[in-house]
Amino acid sequence: MSDKALVRVEHLNVFFPVRGGLPFEKKKQVEAVCDMTFEIRQGETFGLIGESGCGKTTLANAILGMRPPTSGKVFFKGQDLYALKGKDFKALRRDMQMIFQDPLSSLNPRFDVLDIISEPMQIRGGFSEEEMEARTVELLEMVGLSKEDLHRHPSDFSGGQRQRIGIARAISLHPAFLVCDEPVSALDVSVHAQILNLLMRLQKELGMTYLFISHNLAVVKSICSHMIVMYLGKAMEWGPTDKIYKNPVHPYTRALLDAVLDIDVDNKKEKKLIQGELPSPIDPPKGCRFCTRCEYATEKCRTEAPPTVKVEPGHYCACHFAEGCVSEA
């Protein structure tokens, strides 16, 4: 482990028990996050990619200390997050904040902007009313809103502006680590660029580390240095972003890349669309979890869990056939 790691996740499992079933039947469980291990370095943007229902948000919640894992450990700044209690936990937790996907449902409609942004400061305590207001104005200007917006309510703003308020609230206590859970997928395409540029600028100015969750590979490409492609709770392919884009090995990664819509009308590529949908995580397929939708799946894929294959330095893939790609490359 390098000493620059801000967040380290070790063999993290998050399972949810399923209620019901017969009395003596083996209890079923949803394997939302299954054996995830990775580290996020200081100052980088780490991408977490996958479809809805693959466990991205559960993983983010576990990292933030909001969802105690079934097993495994989360280290933040070298400290085991779930070993801390009370005050120590709160002090550490203060350094990690979150931006949510839906900016409307994550803002209290009865609060005005001042209340929303200064709430973290109120909870922390030690700020006077004037200090909080001054800091709020400063934050508003940082995210591209103005002092006049101080006493308006979330319903007065457009989607992009609401997301800016969410960002201002998240950075109000100078966090070191920010989880962005699909921050742009609820917004118009034209506003995507504004919010992403804002996030990148703030990262530079404040030296924050991001965990960026998305299902769109085109968004992740230009902002993340490392990424993990996740499917049904398991990591499929991980490594430096540029290497994965240059040489995607896992069939799922390739399918995700193909699903990105292109505006290049001149060379229409024949695209292989991924068939079907995510199977239920209650009864995940045996062997490789992707086998039900994978066009290359063989008998081996259905029975044996795939090994982790090193494709190139730092770039790993969990697929039975990844080794073939290594020799190709």
């Binding site: 395409v189 660029a193 992403l196 540029n197 085109a218 230009s222 902002i223 290049d264």
Partner: peptide
């Protein structure tokens, strides 16, 4: 404004 896979730049046009 559309993010493209072929993009090399690190700033989005807005």
């Amino acid at each position: 404004a559309i993010p493209k896979l072929s993009d090399e730049h690190h700033e989005f046009i807005q």
